[in-house]
């Protein structure tokens, strides 16, 4: 396991990876009453390397900084130390090759499903007819072709999240990052969407590189090629675990011995962190 971690960080330049975070550090400074300025170290010595087309789940105790890392990749947040490379080039600000899906959907409530999905294309100046075609195709892919003219709040939570995924996929990003996208959904919908996500990921021509933030061990195992487990704050990667379950996966994967073994392993690592936190 430790060899795996070092193995992942061996490339000094990180050039070979789709996404590479080297010794990343992030400190929030805030003005606190009485004590002048206070600083919270959220990430420290964070190393993660992801290959092209890989599905990586980022798992960690709550408040460990996993969403902060995701926001840094999304370009919504800056970092203080280390390097972040996308295709070997340093990332500063929002990269147009990254698509983001938020837990709270973040759809534009005044736009129809169709227009929401077209938004990224519109920003990129794609002509109206072309973006209509692309959006329609992506909406068919996520199974929402019958709801194109609906406003988002007329849809269920699971459908809204499918719209959000469609919106992020429409402009064909290289990397898709998802921040606990199914956490707010009920158990049945969650499992259905996990299957859907894998189906969509496997149908698109060239597999997208996915970073999936979650706090659910089961979700991480079912979806990912590798699971990166974080330490408590200040967060860094504690271990990376391979998930050797065959693809395409379906619900039977959840009943295999390998699944159970990984589950115990990951749970033990997480347990350690939670106890350290106490």
């Amino acid at each position: 396991m430790t060899e795996l971690v070092t193995g992942l960080t061996k490339s000094a330049t990180g050039n070979a990876y789709k996404l590479y975070a080297g010794d990343l550090g992030k400190t929030f400074r805030h003005i606190s009453h009485g004590a002048g300025t206070a600083a919270t170290e959220v990430l420290k010595g964070f190393n993660l390397a992801i290959q092209e087309g890989e599905f990586v789940a980022l798992l960690g105790p709550s408040g460990c900084g996993k969403s902060t890392f995701l926001n840094i990749i999304a370009g919504l947040e800056d970092f203080n130390e280390g390097r972040l490379l996308l295709d070997g080039a340093a990332v500063r600000g929002v990269s147009k090759t990254v698509g983001v899906v938020f837990q709270s959907y973040a759809l534009f409530p005044w736009l129809s499903v169709q227009k929401n999905v077209e938004a990224g294309l519109r920003i990129r100046g794609v002509p109206a007819r072309e973006r209509h075609e692309i959006a329609s195709r992506v909406l068919r892919m996520v199974g929402l072709e019958g709801f194109t003219q609906h406003l988002p709040h007329r849809l269920s939570g699971g459908m809204r999240q499918r719209v959000a995924i469609a919106r992020a996929l429409a402009y064909d990003p290289e990397v898709l990052v998802l921040d606990e996208p199914f956490a707010a959904l009920d158990a049945q919908t969650r499992e259905f969407l996990q299957n859907e996500l894998l189906r969509i990921w496997e149908t698109v021509g060239r597999k997208k590189t996915i970073l999936f933030v979650t706090h659910s061990i089961d979700e991480a195992i079912f979806l990912a090629d590798r699971i990166a487990v974080m330490t408590k704050r200040p967060g860094k990667i504690k271990s990376v675990i391979d998930v050797n379950l065959s693809r395409p996966r379906d619900d039977t994967a959840r009943a295999t011995a390998e699944y159970g073994r990984i589950r115990r392993e990951v749970a033990a690592i997480l347990q350690e962190e939670v106890e350290l936190g106490k």
């Binding site: 999304a74 919504l76 990254v98 973040a106 920003i123």
Partner: peptide, 9 residues
């Protein structure tokens, strides 16, 4: 919503 628009470019 603003963050979503920013990530869309």
């Amino acid at each position: 919503l603003i963050n979503a628009a920013r990530t869309l470019g």
